[in-house]
Amino acid sequence: MTIIKHELKQGRLSFAVWTGAIAFLLVICVCLFPEIKGEMSDVGDIFSSMGSFTEAFGMDRLNFGTLTGFYAVECGNVLGLGGAFFASLAAVTALSKEEKGRTAEFLLTHPISRNRVITEKLAAVMLQIVAMNVLILALSLGSIVMIGEEIPWKEILLLHLAYFLLQVELAGICFGISAFLRKGSSGIGLGIAAMMYVLNLIANMTDRVEFLKYITPFGYCEGADIVTDGKLNFARIVPGILLAAAGIFAAYVKYGRKDIQ
């Protein structure tokens, strides 16, 4: 527990900034909905007639005039990208920052096993992801109530669950990468998150590369699919969870034997 507490303390500023920024943008988006809803007759046609751009963001299958449609696109992008960046960043630096910051010599000359270091650091990353999602969900629900809309529980919870799984998947992959790195890890984490996001946009634009949806976790976070189907696509989630598990396994194997510089 000592390392978990230490990691949470060390990461509290980053956690507060990312959680605050995502929650703030989500609340702003929700608060904009009543105005958008009123102007829907004007903007609906515009949103649905932007060609590939419309398809890329799934706006061809969602009704912007409903809270679920609006939330799935606007809030989904904020939570999807923001959450992905935070999870990737927290995970990719978790192990590598000790060598980069030259604190590994302090940490690893205490009577703790490498496995314990890995386990507690992973737990700290996951706890931060859980806490961020709980806080954001609570604020999001609060803001929906505030604008006088009825909460579409099923859709909202499914969307948030999908984004939570996306963050866990990216965290698992980036945690594995972290074990191999000694320097400059944050760029890699942010790059992976951004690349996964773009892969999904490309997969949305053309059917020829639909297989990409099984690679990128944004594939199972597609708001249009979740709202339309009323369920998550487990065929896309399972490969993602396996990737995350592989990342975590790689972290244990690599970091357990790594020569610490």
Partner: peptide, 30 residues
């Protein structure tokens, strides 16, 4: 390591921590 005290040639600690926090962290890890 439970029976060893190690003094590295270059002492580096976590940013933002106070001396007492570092000492407590070291003791807690033990």
């Amino acid at each position: 390591l439970n029976r060893v005290g190690y003094l590295p040639s270059e002492a580096v600690f976590y940013d933002g921590m106070r001396v007492r926090d570092v000492l407590k962290l070291s003791a807690d890890l033990r």
